[in-house]
């Protein structure tokens, strides 16, 4: 799941400079699950914008809406408030939603209300951790299911560095050393040989190395066929 968090409020207000009519638009998928961009968070942000507007006499009117996903245009049919009526839309979707809405509605100002942070999972009440980096070349098979790309601060692929410190990474004391975890898991699995193998330098083209990535499912491509008489 994509995890995101609210942008600093002042940054949002700076984006909204000059806007009189604002729609705060929640997204009912990942960002709802991580309690960052759902209906409720949209309402909370709307209240904060109204408060700032009142305190500074900016006279901004704010409405709140939320759709199932901002990254599929069919859901745009479900707007309760038409975004075209607003000077700016603060999208509480991840960057995908913001980017996609901007593409589909190029006349509108779609502004990001969140910073999209990582692909993660809930690990404790109210806590999400990064599990995947979307590198395009999954190595989990030989790392005991623990991703060194996402969870080693240096994305190392050949093992621990000298910064492993009591099971933690020296970069952040609360962060586990991913490679120590991988080592322990592989040892438990009796697969330390996987650790012993030299992993060659990665092909970063599958990550962001060669630009925008895309998925093409040709079996679902547009069909250009007249019905037979």
């Amino acid at each position: 799941m994509i995890v995101a968090e609210l942008k600093p409020f002042d940054e949002i207000m700076a984006m909204l400079a000059g806007s009189r009519k604002v729609l705060v638009l929640g997204c009912g998928s990942c960002v709802t699950v991580c309690l960052s961009g759902g209906q409720k968070q949209a309402e909370e942000l709307a209240s904060l914008i109204r408060l700032r507007s009142q305190q500074t006499g900016m006279d901004i009117t704010v409405d709140v809406d939320c759709i199932t996903r901002q990254c599929d245009k069919e859901f745009f049919d479900n707007f309760k408030f038409d975004p075209r009526g607003y000077d700016a839309v603060v999208s509480l979707a991840c960057g995908v939603g913001v980017g996609f809405m901007s593409r589909e509605m190029p006349d509108l100002r779609i502004l990001p209300g969140l910073n999209t942070t990582f692909y993660g999972a809930n690990t404790a009440p109210g806590e999400w951790k990064e599990f995947c980096h979307g590198c395009g070349d999954c190595v989990l098979a030989w790392t005991g299911g623990i991703c060194p790309i996402a969870r080693c601060s240096k994305s190392l692929i050949n093992g621990t560095c000298g910064g492993t410190n009591g099971g933690k990474c020296e970069v952040k004391p609360e962060m586990d050393c991913a490679w120590l975890l991988i080592y322990q898991r592989l040892r438990e699995l009796g697969k330390l040989d996987e650790y012993r193998k030299i992993r060659p330098a990665r092909d970063w083209r599958k990550d962001r190395g060669s630009g925008v990535r895309r998925l093409s499912r040709q079996e679902l491509s547009q069909i250009d066929e007249e019905p037979r008489q």
């Binding site: 050949n158 093992g159 621990t160 490679w179 080592y183 650790y195 012993r196």
Partner: peptide, 12 residues
């Protein structure tokens, strides 16, 4: 503290 992963990496 955990020296085996260091040694394996040294071997590599």
């Amino acid at each position: 503290e955990e020296v085996e992963p260091q040694i394996i990496k040294l071997e590599k």
